[in-house]
């Protein structure tokens, strides 16, 4: 196998891993959203758990979808 083919395979593997992380976050968000609406329907006065779920959801979106850690990466780091 030549060098270019190895690079392509590595890139494909990295892409699939990134897709897997994205899908995992979506599942987490779906479960938390269902939980959120269930709490809202049975106990709308429970603002603390509802806001905690919102904070947790925002954390996952900012970390895995918005790639917040990239902001603190060295300036010329490879993607």
């Amino acid at each position: 196998m030549d060098e270019k083919a190895i690079d392509n395979n590595e890139m494909e593997a990295r892409k699939l891993e990134a897709f897997r992380v994205g899908a995992g976050v979506l599942i987490l968000l779906a479960v938390m959203t269902i939980g959120e609406f269930w709490i809202g329907a049975v106990a709308s006065a429970w603002w603390a758990p509802l806001l905690s779920i919102a904070v947790l959801k925002a954390f996952f979106v900012m970390r895995d979808y918005m790639h917040l850690p990239r902001l603190f990466a060295p300036e010329e780091a490879e993607e």
Binding site: S44, A45, A54, V61
Partner: peptide, 21 residues
């Protein structure tokens, strides 16, 4: 686009879930 999503993540409980209807 994800920022718009994060904003809604907080709008949703504030508008639709928290507080007595």
């Amino acid at each position: 686009w994800h920022f718009i999503d994060v904003v809604w993540i907080f709008c949703c409980p504030a508008l639709y879930l928290i507080g007595r209807p």
